[in-house]
Design a protein around this nucleic acid. Structure first.
Lengths: 231, 231
DNA sequence: CCTACCGATCGGTAGG
DNA sequence: CCTACCGATCGGTAGG
């Protein structure tokens, strides 16, 4: 794709020029914490999520985002420092929410089956609630997006792994406790569960599909929990 | 990302200029059917598949492909008419193979469980065998890639739906025959199965992963078939 | 002086 | 098959 001259160069310096006048004004506006500014910034991120969902992150241009936002492309830089900033904002919101709830479920009371039921339901309801942010999160493979391991990409990949680990540990505990069958590799089982959940982004459009998140979660859980039951 | 002027325009005419000198020479070479030419063209498609897998189709440039192929970007047009041609070649090979085998399985003898076992095993072994073509097929969402409904995109989407329909009909037949439980929506069940299979592209690297296609297929089938069993 | 931008253009690269 | 380019557009920044 088209790269900025900073990326095109051989240096590994940050992509964004953080000393430009517009970036200084952006930082000042963020520091001030005006509620109007914050609201308009959040609205911009939402607009970006809609456009990224429609066209894909790399194919979508900042001009597409600006047009939908009803402003000029150059004006976006009053709110964000780069296109990647927009992607980060889209993803981190839903990811942080999922992770916090996931940790709470894992640490809470209940059997493995109950906790997995909560975790799967949370994931699909979060997808429904945080659409299209959640779509962008699943669609955009971080390892493909970030050419090199930037700090923010590593953070998002790390948090994704932590969430997956919550499920893996629950499956593992279920096998240990004798709730689940023990003849299948735990990693493959967990990957299969996430496959059912994450592939929804290709066919589930909240508000426009035949079934809602609760029904989808229920169906997947029926298959998974019965399929994993000790015979 | 950067779009060609044909796409940027409002017309629905083909992207490629098929009257250019290089395209006429390409057609002549294809018509002649020289084995050397065909072999080098196939090698180019394979190189493209490797690059598309690494960077993603839109992010990858023809210069990336040419560099890996050991030639100039402009020279690629002696073998293919456009970047989209390379994507089509990558995908149609694996898709046609899967569809042909899938039809044979569906039309053949056996119970629903036996046929689904064959279909899932075929899909994962095909992924393993046709990697990285198969990765590109799953990764690149056709509805995102083709801005408008081009002929080749429609063909690939149609064939994908036909393959999915084979599985849907098998699940449906299994419910009718009393082999499967009847309390879950057939569409969601089928989507869950394809989710398990297709999400492999995010974590399964043939030859570099802990488990092979047969083990993955066996694990998914154990969960799915036991989970779908009539209680 | 501030805010929220605009019109114009930068260096580079896209597919062809 | 390369050299030499095109019309268009990229993400990002300049001054006002």
């Amino acid at each position: 794709m088209c790269q900025s001259r900073q990326q095109a160069g051989r240096t590994a310096v940050p992509t964004t020029n953080n000393t430009s006048r517009i970036s200084q004004r952006r930082k000042a506006a963020i520091a001030e914490g005006g509620p109007e500014y914050a609201a308009k910034r959040a609205k911009l991120v939402q607009t970006a999520a809609v456009v990224f969902r429609e066209k894909g992150y790399t194919t979508a241009t900042l001009n597409d985002v600006a047009e939908r936002f009803g402003t000029d492309r150059a004006s976006l830089y009053y709110y964000v420092g780069s296109k990647e900033d927009l992607l980060y904002e889209c993803i981190s919101t839903v990811l942080d929410a999922n992770l916090e709830q996931g940790r709470r479920i894992a640490a809470g009371p209940g059997t493995v089956r109950e906790k997995l039921t909560e975790l799967v339901t949370l994931t699909l309801k979060s997808y429904e609630e945080h659409y299209p942010y959640a779509f962008v999160y699943i669609q955009e493979d971080m390892s493909h997006i970030a050419g090199r391991s930037t700090e923010w990409a590593e953070e998002l990949v790390g948090k994704t792994h932590e969430f997956e680990r919550l499920a893996f540990d629950l499956v593992s505990a279920g096998i240990q406790a004798g709730e689940f069958r023990s003849d299948l590799p735990t990693g493959l089982v967990t990957n299969g569960l996430f496959g059912m959940m994450n592939w929804t982004h290709r066919w589930f459009v909240p508000g426009h599909s035949k079934h809602d998140a609760a029904e989808i979660a229920g169906t997947f859980l029926s298959i998974f929990l019965d399929g994993m039951a000790r015979t």
